[in-house]
Design a protein around this nucleic acid. Structure first.
Lengths: 120, 120
DNA sequence: ATGGCTGTATTATGGCACTGATGCACCTCA
DNA sequence: TGAGGTGCATCAGTGCCATAATACAGCCAT
C-alpha cells in the first residue's frame, strides 16, 4: 500500500522508467555485454510496442552517466566497466535511499529480513 | 535508480500518497487509536501545508476499505480492529507484491538481506 | 553513390494525475 | 436558532507522460 503503487512492476509506472530499469538490469547481468551494441531505439520500441522517442528517453540517462557511448549513424555501445560501475552506483543508492525505509516498513509489519532471506 | 524515484521519502511522490502512508503508519502504531477521531481534513491540511482536498483524497481509501467510518458533520473515526486488519493486509501485500522484487533487486546488486538485518 | 540503417531535434496533440478555490449539506453546541 | 465545526461535490488549472508525423545528420555495405 506504500511503495506498491510505484514499483517497477506497476503498470502505471511511466514506460520510459520501466524501460530504463530493464536496460540497467540487462547491463548489470551482462545481457548487454560491455563493448557490444545496444538494441536500436526503433528495434526496442517495436519489441515493446512503444514509441522510439520513449526508448530514446530511457537511453538518455545512461549516456549522461557515461555508461553508454553513441556513434552517430551506427548505434549505442556499452562502455567498458559499465556493468560494475552501474552495479556499485545502484548498490550505494539502494543502501542510502531505499533500504532504511524498507527496513522500517518491515519492522512496522512485524517482518524480519533475516527470516525472509530463505525465499530464493 | 529503480525504486528510488518513487519512495515514500521522495519529494516528487504525490502528496496524497505520502499522507496516506503516514496515516496508515499512525493507525498501525496506535497514534490514531481505534474508536478515536482522526484529525479533520482541514486540520491535517494546515499542519502539512497541503490542501484539504488532498488530505480528503488520502483519507478516501481508508473509507473504502472500511477501516474508517464517517459521521457527516462530525468527523472520521477509526473502526474497531482497524490497526490489526491494516497491518495484516499490508503485510500480505508487501510479501506478495514488493518483497519478491526487492529480493531480486538485492540479489542483482550482490546484497544479502540477512547481512543487512544488522542495521537497526 | 545510393539505399538502408543508426540517433536525434522539432512540433503538436491527447490523456491523465495532482492540486487548488469555492460552495454546499450536515452535525453539534451554546 | 445561529455560529462554527465536520466531510464532500463541482469545476478549473497545471504539468508530466506518451504518442505521432516529419525531418535531419551521420555511417556502412552493396
Amino acid at each position: 500500500m506504500a511503495l506498491m503503487h510505484l514499483m517497477a512492476t506497476n503498470p502505471n509506472r511511466p514506460v520510459y522508467l520501466k524501460l530504463r530499469d530493464q536496460i540497467a538490469a540487462a547491463i548489470i547481468d551482462g545481457v548487454y555485454p560491455e563493448g557490444e551494441m545496444l538494441p536500436s531505439v526503433r528495434a526496442l520500441a517495436a519489441e515493446h510496442g512503444a514509441n522510439p522517442l520513449t526508448v530514446a528517453k530511457a537511453y538518455q540517462q545512461f549516456q549522461n552517466d557515461g555508461l553508454v557511448e553513441v556513434q552517430r549513424g551506427v548505434g549505442m555501445y556499452v562502455v567498458k566497466g559499465a556493468a560494475e560501475r552501474l552495479r556499485a552506483r545502484e548498490r550505494e543508492a539502494f543502501l542510502r535511499d531505499e533500504w532504511p525505509e524498507i527496513r522500517a516498513r518491515m519492522a512496522r509489519l512485524g517482518l524480519d529480513p533475516a527470516d525472509l532471506a530463505i525465499f530464493t
